[in-house]
């Protein structure tokens, strides 16, 4: 139990650091709003190792801490919407067993981007932003693929450690 708590804390902490690094170092791509979404590596891995409750929990902790650290209520709404929609898509796909970690991660990334555009439309009232959605779907496919591949590499290594039974 303690070990699980410690590991989840570690996951949340890493996810927070990834988000922070991405916030201060933007990708050198001339398309605004495109992020790699490295934090999602941790969320997807948590979904596969511990389960959906734990994945939602560390994501929520990450978003709250980000909001506190950067004190930006707008980005809080955006990340929360992204997290909710992306988990709402990833969980059924993960459960269905028809998808690998890559499909799950692509769905999460595309869902996250879609949620961000919808939130931006709701916040600004600019309906034209919808024109930007297909670009962000494609970027979600690419970043989701990268994140999924990273997850597929890391997951078997983590399973070796056997998170539940680490001897202290």
């Amino acid at each position: 139990m303690y070990k699980k708590t410690a590991f989840l804390g570690l996951f949340a902490c890493l996810a927070l650091i990834f988000s922070y690094v991405e916030a201060i170092v933007p990708l050198p791509i001339p398309v605004p709003g495109v992020k790699l979404g490295l934090a999602n590596v941790l969320i997807v891995i948590c979904l596969y190792t511990y389960g959906v409750k734990e994945a939602v929990a560390i994501n929520f902790v990450r978003i709250i801490l980000l909001a506190v650290l950067f004190a930006n209520p707008y980005s809080f709404i955006y990340s929360l919407a992204g997290a909710v929609i992306s988990m709402a898509l990833m969980y059924p796909l993960y459960k269905s067993k028809g998808f690998s970690i890559i499909g799950v991660s692509v769905a999460g990334a595309v869902g996250h981007n879609t949620a961000q555009i919808l939130t931006a439309m709701a916040v600004t009232g600019i309906v034209k932003l919808i024109d930007y959605l297909p670009v962000l779907i494609i970027s979600g496919i690419i970043t989701g693929l990268i994140i999924g591949i990273i997850g597929r590499i890391i997951l078997p290594q983590l399973k070796k450690i056997d998170l539940e039974r680490v001897k202290s």
Binding site: S96, G98, F99, G103, V106, D131, P134, V135, I138
Partner: peptide, 24 residues
């Protein structure tokens, strides 16, 4: 990668490419 991964990625790609072409 499983079969449904390819279907998901292919359909999302087709939808967004067609969408972009329509906009342009």
């Amino acid at each position: 990668m499983k079969k449904w991964d390819y279907i998901l990625i292919a359909s999302l790609t087709i939808i967004s490419v067609v969408w972009i072409i329509i906009i342009l």
